[in-house]
Design a binder for these strands. Structure first.
Lengths: 234, 234
DNA sequence: CGCTGTGTTGAATGCCGTCAACGTCGGTGG
DNA sequence: CCACCGACGTTGACGGCATTCAACACAGCG
């Protein structure tokens, strides 16, 4: 069954493309499902395909030679990922896990050159994605250089809820399961420190914790923390 | 006077291109000189051109809203830089300073789409450059997350000398003036800590310091430090 | 009902940033 | 040529923040 263009027509990765162009691009794609916690591709593995996340959330993890892990980013619905081919790389630079059950489109890498040449807007959007990620990553380096752990965690939480937040009666909740350990690996700290800070913030009514769950109840206060501008409570 | 293709024929950014293609690309470029410490472009400034460094060394600096600076990277001879246009960005994400007197080629951004379409190998090389920088930056995030300051500085020094080292009778010397402060801004630490560590390493015969100068006299020992595998001296 | 993964909290250690003072190099101008 | 001055570098003392170590609580699951 062919994929319908309505799946993708509103996504930024396809902006600037005519309807029949989308059809042509989709005709090369196939759709697959990945169960929660399954692996979509692995670091160092030969890159055979590139992907678009239709629904779900994906955690991208880099592992160092010594076995340390860091969470490079979370992929949201509508984003391209695993686009090693667009960077001229033959292996994936990180591992991608389904944070929840996911549906993804995938294209064989062999289709990239052709699609990119025939539909320049598609290529340009992919390159824009890479550029945006480079800039985000550099921003992360700056934060890690200049900010304390507390500000970094606050920034990370704000970033996640703004990209993957879901409004509830209590506040804005992160839309996928996330552990203290995950947050620690995003911010270069330990789960102990994350737990302590979240507990402190919960006492102050800024967030509400839960098992694999974080809800931001007072985004404004959290922003003050992120900018180190609130007076610390006793 | 037209630019000669011999200037660029051996550079990776032009690999896979025929001689006449290089001429066509060069015909759109102009060459300029920048004095030491002058600014080639500034962060947030509207991106009008992209660049190739023909000779010299360039320091790329990002400044945060609060005024903190980090050195994102050094550009070596033969590398593209300021390629915001290839990432679909309209402003430069960082400031570029000439670390020494420099000669650069520049192209107007308006030439990018055309060059990229006519000479796919040129575009692909630029995208490869961006991909490589994304990966380096992510590696830096990993290092900052998992390693101590000492290992980070050792890694940074090894990276610099491998890319911009010059052999001398004493060892491998960094080929451009670099201050303790610069090294601190590359590694997310303070000039005090850098100074202390370099002094300690000098006592151990691993490096030799100097004003705006660092020479690695024992690269192997420095690598052991980087991997945290040498027994610390008393 | 135990087991595993997750989360919380206390106490102690230590790395490295901060503060401070001084030393040194090199360029500049009298 | 020499004196001065600013940029760069060194070193010591101190302390705070976050990691480390440890113990326990709790939930979900087979």
């Amino acid at each position: 069954m062919p994929l319908d263009r309505s799946l993708i027509s509103s996504l930024p990765a396809f902006s600037g493309l005519a309807g029949e162009d989308m059809d042509a691009i989709l005709s090369r794609a196939r759709s697959s499902r990945f169960a929660k916690d399954s692996e979509i591709f692995a670091q160092e593995e030969e890159a055979k395909s590139f992907f678009l996340l239709l629904s779900g959330h994906i955690r991208v993890v880099r592992t160092s030679a010594e076995g340390h892990q860091v969470v490079a980013r979370y992929i949201n619905e509508g984003e391209l990922f695993g686009i090693a081919v667009a960077m001229g790389k033959t292996t994936y630079p990180a591992t991608a896990f389904a944070a929840v059950d996911c549906v993804v489109l995938s294209w064989p890498n062999s289709a990239w050159a052709d699609l990119q040449a025939r539909f320049p807007a598609f290529g340009a959007n992919a390159y824009r994605t890479i550029g945006a990620r480079l800039q985000e990553t550099q921003t992360q380096v700056m934060e890690m250089s200049t900010q304390q752990v507390e500000q970094r965690i606050a920034h990370a939480l704000l970033r996640i809820v703004s990209q993957s937040g879901r409004k509830t009666s209590e506040g804005i909740e992160i839309d996928f399961p996330i552990t203290r350990q995950d947050i620690a690996e995003m911010t270069g700290t330990t789960l102990h420190t994350v737990s302590r800070l979240l507990s402190a913030w919960e006492d102050q009514g800024i967030v509400r914790g839960g098992r694999q769950k974080v809800t931001v109840t007072d985004p404004h206060a959290l922003m003050l923390v992120a900018e180190n501008r609130r007076k610390k409570p006793v």
